[in-house]
């Protein structure tokens, strides 16, 4: 297990490094001066020169990449073009909002999805099983930003049950402001999770070790919890692990639509201002988190099911 974990960890670090290189190289692949492109057509020659020096663009490319990696290791992601504040500081100010949003969304998806999936696997071909099937296809087919728009329309404009703007102040206000946005992201995943849990539960239920447990006369509930569910949630764990990338994409829209602070809102604002250092820094941090999430989900699966540890 420790060997496997180390292997996976090293691979993740390498992937993040490649991702960083792709993002930095992207600036140089496009013809033209990156400083001009970042600042836009209105920039003065002095400002362009200043930016070139500030971003190290006057150095040769290999030197730039090495310096960039060095800076990242020291936690330095560059400076905001306009205010000169450290990008890392700006990004980490916004990050908690997005992380909370995504975590609560996963909770919605996991709790509703696993419950629905289990229930429809255990009570196959009942009306609830059919209903779950319909809900699954329905929620999968609606992109999260459309879901967010409908949530605003239904719960905030028509029913006026929940607030739809901002992050709220204080704990209780914050929670009420979190319900709609996180639901909008999470509900798209309920269908996926439910379908996958149902399919894999049906598969696991027929496996020899489950029949064995039955033959020993172990109670049904205990078999379900410790023999079936433990294996059957695996695809769902993988899905959530690889799905974190999609969750970040969804968070961009949801933060814009619900006017919430967060990484997504930060990136959109930075793109509008053509503030590339912030865009780059924010993309780096999200990519790092996504790779970490994939790593964790792989390790969780290896821990749940020792058979998976040998594969890499």
């Amino acid at each position: 297990m420790i060997f496997y974990a180390t292997q996976r960890f090293v691979l993740s670090v390498v992937i993040v490094m490649v991702a960083v290189s792709i993002l930095t190289l992207m600036l140089h692949v496009v013809p033209g001066d990156p400083a001009v492109m970042i600042l836009g057509p209105r920039a003065t020659p002095e400002l362009i020169e200043q930016t070139r020096v500030a971003m190290g663009l006057d150095q040769p490319l290999p030197v730039q990449i090495v310096t960039f990696f060095g800076n990242i290791l020291r936690g330095d992601l560059g400076q905001d073009v306009f205010t000169g504040r450290a990008v890392s500081q700006i990004v980490f100010e916004q990050l908690p909002y997005t992380l909370i949003l995504i975590t609560v969304s996963i909770l919605w998806a996991a709790v509703l999805g696993i419950a629905l999936g289990c229930y429809s696997a255990l009570r196959r071909n009942t009306w609830l099983d059919t209903l779950t099937g319909v809900i699954s296809v329905g929620t999968i087919s609606i992109p999260s930003f459309v879901m967010a728009l409908y949530s605003v329309l239904l719960f905030a404009v028509w029913l006026r049950w929940l607030p739809a703007i901002g992050a709220g102040e204080g704990v209780w206000d914050g929670v009420t402001h979190l319900i709609l946005p996180s639901f909008a992201i999470g509900v798209s995943w309920v269908g996926y999770v439910a379908r996958i849990v149902r399919a894999s539960m049906l598969e696991v239920m027929g496996q020899p070790h489950v029949r064995m447990a039955r033959a020993y006369g172990l109670p049904d509930g205990w078999i379900t919890r410790s023999h079936i569910l433990k294996i059957a949630v695996q695809p769902a764990v993988t899905l959530i692990g690889t799905g974190v990338a999609h969750l970040f994409s969804a968070a961009v829209f949801v933060e814009v639509i619900f006017a919430r602070p967060g990484i997504g809102a930060l990136i959109v604002q930075a793109v509008n201002e053509r503030n590339y250092p912030i865009v780059l820094g924010a993309v780096l941090v999200t990519t790092g988190i996504i790779v970490l999430a994939t790593l964790i989900s792989d390790l969780v699966i290896a821990w749940l099911d020792p058979r998976q540890r040998e594969e890499l």
Binding site: V18, M37, A245, A270, V283, T287, I290
Partner: peptide, 23 residues
């Protein structure tokens, strides 16, 4: 494979926004 994995670890929209800033 490494490059593919790196590209897949960007969220589509976030990566798209980075490209929009450049071009």
């Amino acid at each position: 494979l490494l490059v593919f994995d790196a590209l897949r670890s960007f969220p589509t929209i976030v990566f798209g926004l980075a490209v929009v800033t450049i071009i």
